[in-house]
């Protein structure tokens, strides 16, 4: 059985409970054991802006904590995945840099030797479980559900992070994971567009305009929902729709699912207690009605 240290990051446990709930439930069904580690802290993703060294230290600290327990890391947030994986690769490749980092980690009684792999949850599902196994495990038919995938930038970039796994300019893994549930991945023009989450605290106007661009593009597509795999992307597309409607006079009401929620539905999870669907900002009644209907058929 595969075991991972669960790296929650900051955004998921603070704001996106349903992502944490559904991820825990889904991984359990598929035989992935998650170990909660109290000593994890922020991955340092934003701190690199102020001081690159601090960012790297924070990432290294988390890597060291997992390494001490002999566990690879599974993240829910794409940015955490990116920041930790980038640090892990750099520190592995550069012993001098590792030495420098360790001289500081020493003060908190930690050391990073360079033996950790960091994977985003979708990568674990894709690589460790595999699309075929997921297909076999599906209990509820979601066929016909039209889902627009959104990957999240740091799931794919920089290119060497996703090398051999997915392709930043023509990504496929989330499409395949969606197909595995029976739902239909719908391609759309702005699918690779960034959610702007990082810019949100700097300029709401800029970020919400950016989010609105994608929502407007989706408006022209026949879709039932958007499916994504990052808490920040969720906040931008899920929670911000009402603000956008108010600010720009739009009428968006696009249901947004986190991938484990979609997968959880296919695996027969309880929509509320297992998957937290009731916590999503945009009501999922339409989707639930469809599933109920196809169950009866």
């Amino acid at each position: 059985m595969n075991r991972y240290a669960l790296f929650l990051g900051c955004t998921t446990p603070r704001y996106v409970f349903q992502y944490e709930l559904s991820s825990r439930w889904v991984l359990k069904q598929l035989g992935i054991e998650l170990i909660d580690i109290d000593d994890f802290a922020c991955c340092g993703f934003n701190q690199i802006d102020l001081n690159k060294e601090t960012g790297l230290l924070l990432a290294a600290m988390n890597l060291a904590v997992a390494e001490a327990r002999g566990l690879n890391i599974l993240t829910l947030c794409t940015s955490c995945a990116g920041a930790l994986a980038e640090a892990a690769k750099k520190l592995k490749a550069d012993p001098k840099k590792r030495e420098g980092v360790n001289s500081k980690l020493q003060t908190v009684a930690l050391e990073y030797r360079g033996n950790i792999e960091v994977k985003h949850i979708s990568r674990v599902l894709y690589e460790d479980i595999g699309v075929e196994k997921i297909e076999e495990a599906v209990k509820t038919d979601l066929s016909g559900l039209r889902a627009a995938p959104h990957y999240g930038c740091h799931y794919l970039k920089p290119e060497w992070i996703s090398a051999g796994f997915d392709e930043p300019d023509a990504p496929q893994t989330l499409h395949q994971l969606i197909s595995a549930t029976g739902a239909v991945p719908i391609s759309y023009e702005t699918s690779n567009l960034c959610c702007g989450g990082k810019t949100f605290p700097i300029s709401r106007d800029t970020t919400l305009s950016l989010v609105n661009r994608k929502l407007n593009n989706l408006k022209t597509k026949e879709i039932d929902c958007m499916v994504l795999q990052c808490p920040t992307c969720y906040l931008m597309y899920g929670e911000m729709q009402k603000q956008i409607n108010k600010r720009f006079g739009e009428e968006h009401e696009v249901p947004v699912l986190l991938y484990p929620q979609l997968l959880g539905l296919a695996l027969g999870g309880n929509p509320q207690t297992d998957l937290g669907l009731d916590l999503n900002a945009i009501p999922l009644d339409g989707i639930m009605a469809r599933i109920a209907k196809s169950d009866q058929d």
């Binding site: 391609s187 759309y188 023009e189 702005t190």
Partner: peptide, 13 residues
């Protein structure tokens, strides 16, 4: 930077 295909018209943006 990149080319995006408009799904319906197959135009390129």
């Amino acid at each position: 930077g990149e080319i995006i295909e408009e799904t319906d018209t197959k135009n390129l943006i």
